[in-house]
Design a protein around this nucleic acid. Structure first.
Lengths: 358, 358
DNA sequence: CTTGCGCTTGAGACCGGTCTCATAACAAGA
DNA sequence: TCTTGTTATGAGACCGGTCTCAAGCGCAAG
């Protein structure tokens, strides 16, 4: 075996020798378990300090079977939604002396699988995952440690889950738009759909995506808008290609008069695209987005948003997970957090209608 | 010893027994080292698959002394600057099969110390740190594994470091403002200064903060602006209190006619504060900020920014660190990345001067 | 003075891998 | 045929902790 690169770290045995006690006794003091006499306790501590002893958490984890860390797999840390949620998670984790290993899935199942495998191999005590795709969840089933789902529920997976009331949020937001007189409303989401949509909402089993669409469609139905499904745009990402697609949509003859965006990244891209097309908000087009990202209040006009309790989302997921880690084994809980709509200035009546309609 | 919670995970020995070979041989196949005959190799693999063997990375790390992960300590993941840098780091790390353990210091030294201690105990192979304070770096000195500094250099710490040319950036940005005719220019930074400033720039040894201030002061000197130090505002954070302080500054009789902000979070807060005061950009006040955050291009007016190669910053730091992890021990490198100024619409001439001056 | 109990301590197994070393088996060269 | 070399395999030590178990000790009760 190669000499480990670190220059001779101090072990329990070293401390024991220095303090002239057995390894077991030194370990008891250093590990904080068992009973040791005052005298010896002090002696060991002194020896440890003199030698500069640092416990090897890895070795400790090996015997205890607990690593003291949890794994978090999110779609994209760059998305402020996730950074805030992660913040919530790590704040809670730190309070319990647990630390967080973060992994990015880039919203791709394969990357997610690989991340989970690595995390599991690292013996994380628990996992918080934002599943990238709901169709492929075998790898989530196989997870042998406590698992919590963040932001996206999986109906077939009965584990602790924290989401927001996406359906109702989408319903209310869309309702707001129909009330304003809009009839050509688009829902633009970053989620990708394998295959084609066409009303098969049941096929989408990522809760967040499905619930929002369901809410959106319900509001459309209430307003007697037909073929609303046509206006659902999937796969909007940070890429150049999807930006072009948005421009295309905005320049088409029957362009929507109002848009609901699935997150602030999509919304920002939309905002830029709308400008590029020389359209005005809310004169030519109304815009509402999920997530009260910090920038939404400083644009001209400021954007009406669906405010999700993102920090709380992460916090709750972590709390649920940690509770379970501590041995509590009540049945899995599904928490749904409420959202509120913050009305700003990005919603107006469609151009073709008299302004006093609403 | 308590039975570990995980229900009897499959070990090398189990696989060995199943495949009817010795533990050593099974380990050779599973660990991918040493030489094994074709036949046995296949047999072991089959047995492993049948049993559902998953390697225990912890145990592996224990003997090898390498954990295959690096620790990253940043000030605040919520700050888009850091999320992007972290993204750069993790992208590089993944390519080398290394994973990242993330810790937040909240820009507090004590939290930073504690995070480093935990990370070290977890036997990370290397560390990337954005030191919260430059005065207190004993804990960084003691680090026994490769260390790389991100965004902030420490003159007294000779390790791999990646920064941007803060001084020059601040110089040019400030110069732009003086050229436009401004003479009351404020620099607002999130950094906290222990004690009072008053020209003792040498006392600030966080490179980022010092260099920027130096650049700022140099530009002021060139323009014969006296007492420019007075207009340096420290400790601007996301807190309510600091927002009030900003409002105070903006409402004072000799309020600045132009402001340079140290990061996009500060800038956003400033932007809001400026609005609250009923001031117009750039009519009443000009604004320039470090970091081309996504929102800066969609405000009215869009903000002139100092574009830092943030992703590259993280990427380079990770590359430097990983190179060192692989055994390369050339002397520590200090990389300084260039910045560019993206001129948008937030800079104008001060109100008191005729517009054609510039 | 013994017995018994509680407390402190030491010896050593164990976790799940890696890796060294010795042995066995076999092929090729003398 | 005997030596030498090469390759495949097994036995077991080791990493740095935790934890079990039994022995040693002092003290109070019988």
């Amino acid at each position: 075996m190669k000499r480990p690169p670190k220059i001779s770290s101090i072990t329990v045995s070293d401390v024991a020798r220095e303090a002239k006690v057995s390894k077991a006794t030194a370990a008891r003091v250093l590990g904080g378990y068992g009973r040791v006499s005052q005298t010896v306790h002090a002696a060991v501590l002194e020896a440890a300090k003199a030698l500069g002893y640092r416990p090897n958490e890895l070795a400790r984890s090996m015997t205890t079977g607990r690593s003291g860390s949890i794994g978090v797999v999110v779609g994209d840390i760059e998305n402020p939604f996730f950074s805030l949620a992660v913040r919530g998670i790590s704040d809670v984790a730190r309070l319990s002396g647990i630390n967080v290993i973060l992994a990015n899935s880039g919203e791709e199942v394969e990357a997610e699988k690989s991340a989970i495998r690595v995390l599991l191999a690292k013996q994380v005590d628990g996992l918080i995952v934002t599943p990238a795709q709901a169709g492929d969840i075998a790898h989530l089933r196989e997870i042998s440690c406590p698992l919590a789902l963040l932001d996206r529920a999986l109906p077939e997976l009965d584990v602790d889950t924290v989401t927001v009331d996406d359906r109702n949020a989408a319903l209310r937001a869309t309702h707001m738009l129909t009330q304003a007189g809009h009839r050509r409303i688009a829902y633009v989401t970053a989620a990708v759909l394998s295959g084609d949509f066409r009303g098969a909402a049941s096929r989408i089993n990522t809760s967040t995506v499905r619930e929002r669409i369901l809410g959106f469609l319900e509001a459309c139905r209430e307003a007697d808008i037909e073929n609303a499904e046509r206006n659902i745009h999937f796969g909007s990402s940070r890429s150049e290609r999807s930006h072009v697609l948005l421009l295309e949509m905005l320049r088409s003859a029957d362009r929507p008069t109002a848009i609901l965006a699935s997150d602030s990244v999509v919304a920002l891209d939309l905002f830029k695209a709308i400008r590029e097309c020389g359209l005005g908000i809310p004169r030519d087009i109304s815009l509402v987005t999920f997530h009260d990202a910090d920038w939404t209040s400083v644009t001209t006009p400021p954007i009406t948003v669906i405010d999700q309790p993102v920090y709380a989302l992460g916090k709750s997921a972590a709390e649920l997970l940690i509770r379970r880690l501590k041995g509590d084994d009540r049945p899995p809980e599904r928490i749904v957090l409420p959202t509120t709509i913050i009305e700003r200035m990005s919603v107006g009546a469609p151009l073709s209608l008299p302004h006093d309609q609403s």
